[in-house]
Nucleic acid binder design. Sequence first.
DNA 1: ATCCAAACGCAAGTTAATTGCAACTACCCA
DNA 2: TGGGTAGTTGCAATTAACTTGCGTTTGGAT
Lengths: 142, 142
Amino acid sequence: MKKPAVSIDHPKLLRDAGLRATPGRLKLLTLLQKEPTPVTVTYLERKMRGELNQVTLYRALEALAKVGIVSRVNFEHDHAHYELTVDRPHHHHVVCRSCGHVEDIEVPHSSAPEKDALKGTKEFARIDSYSLEFFGACRACV
Amino acid sequence: MKKPAVSIDHPKLLRDAGLRATPGRLKLLTLLQKEPTPVTVTYLERKMRGELNQVTLYRALEALAKVGIVSRVNFEHDHAHYELTVDRPHHHHVVCRSCGHVEDIEVPHSSAPEKDALKGTKEFARIDSYSLEFFGACRACV
DNA sequence: ATCCAAACGCAAGTTAATTGCAACTACCCA
DNA sequence: TGGGTAGTTGCAATTAACTTGCGTTTGGAT
């Protein structure tokens, strides 16, 4: 018996978040699901060629990020990266400073760092999220 | 007996790093030393008005960052922030998503996270640095 | 005092991302 | 199942952050 590929019901995912399931967004989700690591908007634009205008792509990503379906990842470049967050464990990234290669890593936290951070602040009422990215050199670049 | 203000020898700091001590850079360092949290380039530009061209400011910050005197901090905005790194303990930031307010925090790490990260990666030979920033809401904005 | 690579200022250019607006369509509901 | 409408799209123009090229100035070593 063949194990069925895990498939996410994209239209439902969108509608549950209060967004419309348009062809462009569905294709975008399918595309993002294939990417193991965060990708640039330019990369997505190329892959979507003809099927989604650049501006609409930006707006779609913004809308998806707001409801938590994707997340905008901040490497130390001058453009944003996006990755799917649904159906994936929380993780961090290592970025190669010379070639830009990205690897996902699981960092086992004995305690959630945002809890400690909240204790350490005087001026904040709430901490919603944090970003933890590592920078170094990959084996191919040393 | 008056406690003397801690003063850093800026010309020496620059020359030891192989950079020239120009009036613009000295004023920039004095300015940065007064800022408790990272500031934008635009802010610095206003403060330096007339004394350092915008392009030169960008180049100065780049040069200072390369030798580790300042560091470029990556909040989730579309522009960079810079802070002085010399003479200051390693720390992280909490950023308010609604007003942009920033607070420094000390996060006590029992173990350095970059060590764990290196263990967790298969493709990387070296991890040089990491960034850890927290996002939430400050008391004034809740 | 002299020299030259580093640093500077100006003008123009590049790139990521945003805005305004008219046309379109997903999908709710009769 | 056929509208009505708010959410979505595409186009053109624009903004903001940052960079590049190049001729001129200058810090600081000799």
